[in-house]
Amino acid sequence: MQNLYRLVSLVAACFVIVLSLGEAHAEVRIKDIATFEGVRENHLIGYGLVVGLSGTGDKLTASPFTRESIEGMLERLGVANLDGTVIKTKNTAAVMVTAKLPPFARRGSDIDVTVSSLGDAKSLRGGTLLVTPLSGADGEVYAVAQGAIVTSGFLAEGNASSVQEGVPTIARIENGAIVEREIDFQLDQLDSLRIALRSPDFTTAARVKDAVGTVLGPGAVRVLDPGTIEVRFSGKGPVPEMVAELENVTVLPDNVARVVVDEKTGTIVMGANVRIGQVAISQGGLTVRVNENYRVSQPGPSSIGGSTVVVPLEPVTIGGTTVVVPETEIDIDESERRFTILQGDVSLQELVDGLNAIGVGARQTISILQAIKAVGALHADLEII
């Protein structure tokens, strides 16, 4: 057992293992692992202008699209005779406005929007978004946005320095857009509905089929592929009420054993189904330490042919020269190399138990995992991000 814990400490040191051992096999609701076909958000986008900035808007010489947008807006508002007029405003910025249209959003309801600078504006703080139509992927206008924007960052500049916190060129408007067009989708007219798993898996799909079959009957459900389960209602009741009942049905999801490694931060996340076969590991290394010391020799100031060493001030000598005499110390430390055998079928429970023992660092742990995977003893997908 000592050998086992020693190796477990090597594999588990500096791990960040995100799991709950007591709930590793807990059932979850269908709504938490899947979506229902047609019940989804739709992305909207639009181009607009933000005005009222305190000199932090686009430079019109560097952003010609902002100048043309200002001229077009003023002409539509009745401000004519702008030919040849040089506009030098610094209080306007061209922006892209994005939003998500919720499922079953009705005409007149409000949605949030995000405003992002398109030109070289320094900050959108304190600005107001003018009327901006928001279109979907089909080119139709589904909402119109307008209102005062709120930024989470700020920028303060002076002649010699500047201070910036967050990103002042991105802002939000809570309830900043009004839905003008509804998506034509009638849920209560459907006689069948598809359940789409967020993580396609044959085992999970079969378990969802069995769980839903206990509510609607076995003949009303079938698996189309690892990520899709089709449900037929057959007039058993209103479709929205049936969907509300189905999304709260609990199932036991399954997934592929996987180890995810983030080399940038040294974070390692392991799934509950990870297993390690029998393997022998040797962990150790050679450490060489080199220290440089400087000896200072101070002869008399009137010495002839003597040497004076002063650090860091430049010395003054009479009849002598300035020299640096280094002394090098080399220390070699070779740690003891041992082979430790890890018995087969080690579970994640045993790895977590080894977290109490601190072994090698995170970088060395990642190398150990890669070596175990290379010899075929890690029975899981190793994903390095």
Score class of each variant (00 low, 15 high):
Q370I: 04
G305V: 04
A121G: 08
Q189P: 10
T365I: 00
L286I: 04
M96Q: 11
G38F: 05
A371E: 15
L101Y: 00
T35M: 13
Q298N: 14
A34G: 03
E180D: 13
R29G: 07
I281F: 03
P102V: 01
D225H: 10
T328H: 12
K31V: 09
L378R: 09
E174M: 12
D333N: 10
V39W: 07
V352E: 03
S302H: 13
E68M: 08
V179C: 05
V231L: 06
S54C: 09
T250E: 08
E334H: 04
G285F: 06
I318C: 02
L190I: 11
G126H: 08
F339V: 14
V144W: 03
R125Q: 12
G361Y: 00
A272S: 13
V296I: 12
G158I: 08
G266S: 05
L252Q: 15
V323C: 02
L101D: 01
S297P: 10
T92R: 12
T321G: 11
A377M: 07
I318D: 15
S109D: 10
Q370Y: 02
I268M: 07
E383Q: 08
G285R: 09
T61P: 08
D201V: 01
D333C: 02
T56F: 07
Q349E: 15
G344Y: 10
S109F: 05
G126C: 11
A137V: 08
E247A: 02
D184A: 13
G359L: 10
A26Q: 14
M242H: 03
K264F: 04
A205Q: 06
P168W: 11
V360K: 05
A160Y: 14
T317Y: 12
L342K: 04
Y294E: 12
A24N: 04
L77C: 11
S302W: 13
I183V: 12
T89I: 10
V323K: 09
S152Q: 15
S192R: 11
A257E: 09
T169A: 01
E350V: 02
T265N: 10
P103L: 07
A272W: 06
G213K: 01
N81W: 06
V223C: 05
P218Q: 09
L378M: 06
D381I: 10
T151V: 15
S162M: 15
P326I: 00
F15A: 13
P299I: 09
A80E: 13
G139K: 02
D32I: 01
A280I: 04
D138N: 02
D191P: 03
E68I: 05
P200I: 05
Y47I: 13
S347G: 14
L60N: 10
G166Y: 04
L4N: 01
A371T: 07
L378H: 07
V167R: 11
T114W: 06
L118D: 13
A257I: 09
S367P: 02
L134P: 06
I366Q: 08
Y142D: 03
L134Y: 04
A26F: 04
Y294F: 13
